[in-house]
Design a protein around this nucleic acid. Sequence first.
DNA 1: TATTTCGCATACGTATTGTATGTCAACTCA
DNA 2: TGAGTTGACATACAATACGTATGCGAAATA
Lengths: 200, 200
Amino acid sequence: MAQKREDMIAETQAKLIKSARESFAQHGFAESCMDDLTAEAGLTRGALYHHFGGKKGLLKAVIQQIEEEMTTRLSAIKSKGPTTWDAFINGSIAYLNMASEPEIQRIILLDGPAVLGDPSQWPRKNCCISSTQLSIEKLMEEGAIQRVDSLAMARLINGALLGASLWIANTDDPQAASRKAVDSFLVLMSGLLKSNTTFS
Amino acid sequence: MAQKREDMIAETQAKLIKSARESFAQHGFAESCMDDLTAEAGLTRGALYHHFGGKKGLLKAVIQQIEEEMTTRLSAIKSKGPTTWDAFINGSIAYLNMASEPEIQRIILLDGPAVLGDPSQWPRKNCCISSTQLSIEKLMEEGAIQRVDSLAMARLINGALLGASLWIANTDDPQAASRKAVDSFLVLMSGLLKSNTTFS
DNA sequence: TATTTCGCATACGTATTGTATGTCAACTCA
DNA sequence: TGAGTTGACATACAATACGTATGCGAAATA
């Protein structure tokens, strides 16, 4: 008890974000009702408007929180790779699996882009893309892969993983689909490696 | 004049779809008002509910129309490729450019998935994915590329193109971005070709 | 302790949706 | 051909959810 005001504010915001996250994940953004949402958190819409300016603002906050978690999880995995390439591949596969989780899928892949537009334009930019981009640049510096535009390549790879995730999560046998996706992904990534045949 | 009833029905539906398409493309699905939408078509919401069952139903119809157009455009381009590989690559690049168009981007890439869920589960399935899948299967039969799960690979490729399109359309210099994306895409696709180094 | 700040609740007006009902033209069939 | 039926579409209504304007009370400040 006897919390500072600052702490109480942070707590209400956290409660709202938590509640919103659950509601958005379960019902989707459009079907989520702000009255229910705030009531669940023991508050009213007044608090929501005060802190986040509206429904979209709340979504932004939720997305930021989720992305921070994803970034943490990803960098933990990436740091374990013995080589840059391994880190890159393992991170990609981890991303594939994370993006197959219902909450992330619904909020980050479906509602986020529709409401907030292209993820790369988000306030706290899509961290996962920058992470991929960094990996690519590092690999190029090391001479492990071909020279490409790192941002373009990162967006392609990210999109590929997202597309596969959407498929995996909505298929009858996600386990099997995931395996197939990883196999195919590795084939694609082999194109990055240097010793390749060229074609017109 | 003196149209048959059937023709008039088709005409009202077409008018609604046309109007919805414009509205969805311009304001997005969520911000599109059905009253405005139908008034623009010289009708009321009554007609909309009668023919499409609601806002989502109208979106489905709009998406179907757009996808049919995309399929037509794509197959025209694909049929021109001298080899299966060329057809595949040209089709992919064409898809990349089509998906960068504002209308397609807004309706098919952003609102569609958010409202209707994973595109591969749509009524008239995402034709472009099946098209990609068919190309891959054909290339495998011809022995031109490695053996992979065609559906998984198609979804990866499709996702990659979509991700790149989103980026291209929202960047300062779409022209340059498009070129970079194509270059990087070709590098990735080279991974499909047979004579590749393997890696663990 | 008087005053201000501001976190949050309450109250209100409005916009948009879905449904229930009504109407009139076009088709069916004797 | 004309009475009956269907159904395409409009109108009317009720419910929901949103944004804003306002109010209150506790903490911060002096």
